[in-house]
């Protein structure tokens, strides 16, 4: 189980300002302004999407916007990078799933 580092022996304490957000219709709490990847991981969620083609689970990889592995449906917009999106009060984020067979070209 992952957790927050509330006290760091060199960096000291961190301010915590919990805000609710929706993950697949479930209400979770993140630290206002942190990335959605961090907010979800702090809630023990690693699988951010299922691969469009083979349906395999995927999570955050580079966490700084280069790899696009963390793309999610955020506030109704597909393929938004969770690592580049700060968590805000009431935000909605959903897992993307395997695409229907016909979109994949019948393979």
């Amino acid at each position: 189980m992952t957790e927050r580092i509330t006290y760091h022996k060199i960096l000291g304490e961190i301010k915590h300002n919990p805000v609710p957000f929706n993950w697949n219709d479930q209400t979770l709490y993140g630290n206002a302004g942190e990335s959605l990847t961090a907010a979800l991981l702090a809630n023990g969620i690693r699988t951010l999407r299922y691969h469009e083609k083979d349906g395999k689970p995927r999570g955050l990889y580079c966490n700084i916007g280069h790899c696009s592995e963390c793309r999610c449906l955020i506030n109704g917009v597909r393929n938004q990078r969770a690592c580049m999106t700060p968590v805000r009060h009431g935000m909605s984020i959903e897992q993307q799933t395997e695409l229907p067979h016909r979109i994949k070209g019948g393979r």
Binding site: E34, G59, N63
Partner: peptide, 18 residues
């Protein structure tokens, strides 16, 4: 899920503190 670059782990640990 759970495999990441060292940089990702660094940002999580020292910046996001997760």
């Amino acid at each position: 899920p759970g495999v990441m670059t060292v940089g990702a782990a660094q940002v999580l640990t020292n910046f996001s503190r997760v």
